[in-house]
């Protein structure tokens, strides 16, 4: 404590002391922080169970001081379904990247949404396979260069980038879908609010809640963190707009 000063912001207690090993400026780190802030503020550490993905955030359980299960690649939605059905009063989230949620695990994702599984998806969409070294993702933008699309994503060959938030908002039993980002302080605050909404709706058993994060990957994109923010503004947001796609009726809330 500083004398004469009031503490108004500090690192969330539910983040472990472990130094986070993600690359400088990566939104995984930001989202871990925001999620743990929400867990702290809601006072639900004892009731939270998370599911880790395969991808960069495979080690999320090293940083989040809550019970966690590591899922096979793409299967987080099925694992979260199993947990939540057994422990309906816990707060369950699956934390997944685009390869996990929108490629290898698309079936599990869509069916969990269709059943209205009452857990929260946190979908980190950075348009690239970060951990394996920058290969093309189902969400890589048209023309975007990656190690497996060295001349840019050819949509004639591979199709358009998948819009998961738009897709899952079509399901009747999905309660809340929002796409957020962390590129500015204002957007980070919105992202945190979205996480809070999702967990609160989950607590009220309103159905599936789905937060897509238009994320960056400075290393995979071969940019500085600041350049990655500009890329988000210029290229990503026009295709992946930040907005609320679906929210519960006021009466339900």
């Amino acid at each position: 404590m500083k004398k004469g000063y009031k503490l108004i912001y500090q690192r969330p207690k539910t983040l472990t002391d472990t130094r986070i090993n993600y690359c400088p400026g990566c939104f995984h780190t930001t989202m871990h922080k925001l999620l743990m802030e929400v867990v702290d503020e809601m006072g639900i550490q004892e009731k939270t169970v998370g599911v880790c993905p395969v991808g960069c955030s495979v080690f999320a359980y090293n940083y989040m001081n809550v019970d966690m299960q590591e899922a096979a690649h793409g299967r987080a939605a099925a694992v979260a379904t199993g947990i939540k059905r057994m422990l309906p009063d816990r707060y369950v989230f699956s934390y997944q990247g685009d390869g996990d949620l929108a490629a290898i695990g698309t079936a599990e994702t869509l069916h969990a949404c269709n059943r209205g599984e009452n857990f929260t998806f946190i979908f980190i969409n950075n348009g690239i396979y970060g951990m394996t070294g920058g290969q093309m993702a189902p969400t890589t933008l048209e023309g975007q260069k990656t190690t497996t699309s060295p001349y840019g994503r050819d949509v004639e060959k591979i199709g358009m980038p998948l819009k998961m938030a738009e897709i899952v908002s079509q399901f009747d039993r999905v309660a809340y879908v929002e796409r957020v980002s962390c590129n500015t302080p204002a957007n980070s605050r919105k992202a945190k609010k979205a996480l809070r909404n999702a967990l609160e709706y989950q607590g009220k058993k309103l159905g599936t809640t789905f937060i897509e994060v238009a994320s960056n990957c400075p290393s995979g994109w071969k940019m500085t963190p600041e350049e990655s923010l500009k890329w988000l503004e210029d290229k990503v947001f026009p295709y992946y707009p930040l907005k609320v796609f679906k929210k519960p009726d006021k009466k339900e809330v």
């Binding site: 899922a71 939605a77 099925a78 694992v79 979260a80």
Partner: peptide, 18 residues
Amino acid sequence: AESELAAVNMMYGAGGAG
């Protein structure tokens, strides 16, 4: 489940929840 793949992973989650 939607597949045996999903079923076995629901087993993982539910079994892991005790």
